[in-house]
Design a binder for these strands. Structure first.
Length: 845
DNA sequence: GAGCACTGC
């Protein structure tokens, strides 16, 4: 630090009123209850409405609508669904049992019919005014589409008695009696209203998927039921694990509804090879006589792959041709043979009847390589008879109509997809499914506090779901490119999400719902998470100051509970509002909380990378690139060039729109907890919004303890983190292949192990940013300098500088503490000197 | 020195 900077910082600090006013920060200020004032999720009942009158009105309306011609044709459609025959039995079971488990396969109509049966019954029995039925869905799209379907079956406009509510979007009214919402929306409602007062029936759909929200909801509900004896709970699951949920709810009765789908013929690898005569060539040169096991031993295998490599092919597959047996000998369970996929597609296209083909692959790279192969294929690539479409969550094709549309006659649609086509996107005209049997799956390594994203064998449940994608409109075929013995050894279902992800957000919510000690609450889960994962989450919450040493919520923690965000991102928002750079921080937090707006086009990825880098400029920051892209989008939108801008800049307009809406939601929530005033607007909290040093410092405050040390090694830089040591910058980052960084640290939003351990989005920051906005400062045991992150980071400087930094940091912490205790106080004007001193220091590197 | 499963408040 230069003498000049030091003097200016000292001067600014001494002029600050706050530094002479210690008593204020320690005063026992009464806590503001931080319950949001918005209650949009609660149905507002006119207080003095005559309930009897309303109930009979609802019945008359329902009866009259049944008589219209369109309702009659709807009714005859409904009567064909397998669920229809179960109507009376189902309603009786609901009346007689507090909890009921429904098992049913796709096509049985459980999602659209069961909630509707309850609604009809309640209205018929003149309980329409008192009933409030909620049906949760794991995904936004399904909440909307199911609600739309049910409303039309009832001959109503959406939003009358049937409505939906998802984040930032709802169609409902005071008349709404059946609400489809995402599980996340219901969980947020529970935070405000732990007993779900007014809800008469709750149906939780798709619980077999074992999503984190659904598992969490189920634990809460089991505790809630005794307090709400009048509440009826219906759990809807695929047949595969209905038993587990029944047991969890004290042997609740299970009712099975048969499904209806067209038959799908399945072929396994051995059958496919026999049929197509494709010859698999071994990757490595295997000398005759050497076992396959030996040949692959260098590759780290999984139990399922090992299992196959131990099999004596000639003995096990004696009925198959010699070429098939040779191919099975050469087949590798570890690496997908894309030529096999290609030749299977070609076989179907040459010899089988018409119908779209859906290929399940694991990721971007496989899709891209297979697409190239198909383009180069003499049969598939050289005519206009084939429409080949990549389908990946981050590809620009994901929202294009042609995925769903039927192609012109004489043209066959071939979709190369990831898991997205397993449940999120449904393509009706698929007749052939080709399944590679694997998917990229997250797991959580609690020992190294590391999220992993690695390809692994799917479960039998997933394999079944993928197969079912071929039988939606007619009888279909499923080509499984793995042997039957592997299929038979697959796990029944995937591990629940609660065992595969970091738990900090969940733990914070448990705290805010006052559900007792986090670990004892989570022990009640159908499959409890590893105690070490829970410990890691609690430790992180302590590190960022959301919990104290007693594991109690701090004031900061209480604020974070009200923000529907990862606690780190919530803290980033609060810091952005306190330190006057709210506008950029709203954008960055929205992007990190939702998804990256940059798309990954398959054929122009170099251009896409270049555009992203140009947004970043010389900031060495992916977060700043996001920010600049969003600002440029806003400008383009105002001047009516949104479409061309997004196309040229490789940005997703839908993601940007969602980010924009989320920014508004965050601002409203910050206003609810008193950090900002809605009437004053974002601009009133944005004095340093254009000061990138300050923005990056706030990023540091939010992302801490996600810190990387950059260490020069010759011409290159090596990167290290406390938890796992050496890491790499993800090649998609604007910081990838930067040899020399201007500043010594990076903060990152996500660290994932794939082929290597990668930091995905990062921002280069100075030691001053870390010292002022990072973790708490601890004097070095050696006497010289300061430490952070449990001694992992060490800062040395002259004593005088260290003291000055510590003093400034102390003032900043006090300022923040006061603001958190009393969000409404305008301490910014009071703390001007402290903030100005911090800004001075941040600019001095 | 080379890669990006999918949801949700």
């Amino acid at each position: 630090m230069s003498n000049q900077t030091e003097r200016r910082v000292e001067d600014l600090l001494s002029r600050s009123k706050l530094s002479t006013n210690d008593s204020a920060s320690s005063s026992n200020v009464s806590m503001r209850q931080s319950l949001p004032s918005t209650s949009s999720s609660v149905v507002e009942q006119p207080a003095d409405i005559d309930k009897e009158k309303l109930s009979s009105q609802l019945r008359n309306l329902q009866n009259s609508r049944k008589m219209t011609p369109s309702a009659r044709s709807m009714q005859s459609f409904r009567e064909k669904l397998p669920a229809f025959n179960m109507r009376e039995g189902f309603l009786k079971a609901v009346a007689a049992n507090q909890v009921l488990v429904i098992s049913g396969e796709t096509g049985c109509g459980k999602t659209t019919q069961l909630p509707q049966f309850i609604l009809e019954e309640e209205i018929d029995n003149l309980r329409g005014a008192d009933c409030s039925i909620i049906c949760t869905q794991p995904r936004r799209i399904s909440a909307i589409s199911v609600a739309t379907r049910v409303a039309s079956e009832r001959g109503e406009e959406l939003g009358e008695t049937v409505g939906y509510q998802i984040r930032l979007e709802s169609k409902r009214s005071a008349q709404t009696r059946l609400l489809f919402c995402t599980t996340g929306v219901l969980l947020r409602r529970l935070v405000q209203e732990p007993d779900l007062v007014g809800v008469s029936h709750l149906l939780v759909d798709e619980i077999h998927e074992r999503g984190m929200n659904e598992d969490f909801l189920i634990i809460i509900l089991r505790d809630l039921l005794p307090r709400r004896p009048d509440l009826r709970l219906v759990l809807m699951s695929a047949t595969i694990n209905a038993e587990l949920f029944s047991k969890y709810f004290g042997d609740a009765p299970i009712m099975h509804i048969p499904g209806f789908t067209f038959p799908v013929t399945e072929l396994f690898l051995e059958d496919v090879l026999e049929k197509t005569r494709y010859k698999i060539r071994s990757e490595c040169d295997s000398s005759a006589g050497s076992s396959r096991k030996k040949r692959f031993s260098s590759v780290k295998s999984d139990p399922l792959s090992d299992l196959f490599e131990d099999i004596d092919i000639d003995k096990e597959y004696g009925n198959f041709s010699i070429t098939t047996r040779q191919s099975l000998e050469a087949w590798s369970a570890d690496k997908l043979d894309l030529s096999l996929v290609e030749s299977t597609i070609e076989y179907i296209c040459r010899y089988e009847a018409e119908g779209a083909i859906l290929v399940f692959l694991t990721g971007w790279d496989e899709i891209s390589k297979l697409l190239d192969k198909i383009k180069g294929n003499t049969f598939l690539g050289s005519s206009n008879r084939f429409l080949v479409l990549p389908l990946h969550g981050s590809m620009p094709t994901v929202n294009q109509r042609e995925i769903f549309d039927r192609p012109p006659v004489d043209m066959r649609k071939i979709v190369l997809a990831t898991n997205i086509a397993e449940s999120s996107i449904t393509i009706d005209d698929v007749v052939y499914v080709i399944d590679c049997g694997k998917a990229k799956e997250t797991s959580y390594d609690a020992l190294n506090k590391l999220a992993c994203l690695l390809p692994s064998w799917i479960s039998k449940a997933s394999a079944h779901q993928r197969r079912g994608r071929a039988g939606r409109v007619q009888a279909g075929f499923c080509y499984r490119l793995y042997p039957k013995v592997i299929h038979d050894a697959m796990p029944q279902f995937q591990l629940p999400e609660i065992l595969r992800t970091p738990l900090q957000e969940l733990c914070l919510t448990i705290k805010s719902l006052q559900l007792g000690a986090v670990s004892s609450f989570l022990a009640k889960s159908p499959q409890p998470p590893d105690p070490l994962s829970v410990k890691n989450a609690i430790e992180l919450l302590k590190t960022i100051g959301a919990l104290n040493d007693m594991e109690e919520l701090t004031s900061l923690g209480r604020h974070l509970c009200t923000l529907p965000l990862d606690p780190n991102l919530g803290k980033m928002l609060l810091m952005g509002s306190v330190f006057q750079c709210l506008d950029p921080v709203l954008t960055i937090a929205a992007a990190l909380a939702y998804r990256n707006p940059f798309v990954l086009p398959i054929d122009r990825k170099e251009e896409a990378d270049a555009v992203k880098r140009s947004f970043a400029g010389d900031s060495c920051s992916d977060h700043i690139a996001l920010l600049k892209a969003f600002v440029a989008w806003k400008e383009a939108k105002c001047s009516g060039r949104e479409r061309s801008f997004c196309w040229e800049s490789f940005l997703s307009p839908m993601t940007l729109k969602m980010m924009d809406d989320m920014r508004n939601q965050f601002f409203d929530l910050l206003s609810d907890i008193g950090f900002v005033s809605k009437t004053r607007g974002v601009k009133a909290y944005n004095q340093y919004g254009s000061d990138l040093e300050m923005v990056c410092a706030v990023l540091c405050a939010g992302l801490y303890p996600n810190v990387v040390q950059c260490k020069r090694q010759g011409k290159r830089t090596a990167f290290y983190t406390k938890d796992v040591g050496k890491v790499d910058i993800h090649p998609s980052s604007v910081n990838a292949f930067v040899n020399q960084f201007p500043l010594p640290y990076l903060v990152y939003s996500e660290k994932v192990k794939t082929a290597s351990i990668y930091v995905r989005d990062s921002t280069n920051i100075s030691d001053y940013a870390l010292l002022l906005f990072g973790g708490s400062l601890i004097p070095s045991k050696t006497g010289e300098g300061i430490e952070m992150l449990g001694g992992y980071l060490h800062f040395s400087a002259p004593k005088r500088t260290i003291e000055l930094i510590q003093r400034l940091r102390g003032e900043l912490d006090k300022l923040l503490e006061r603001k958190i205790e009393e969000p409404g106080l305008d301490i910014f004007s009071e703390g001007k000197g402290v903030v100005a001193a911090a800004v001075e220091l941040l600019h001095s590197h």
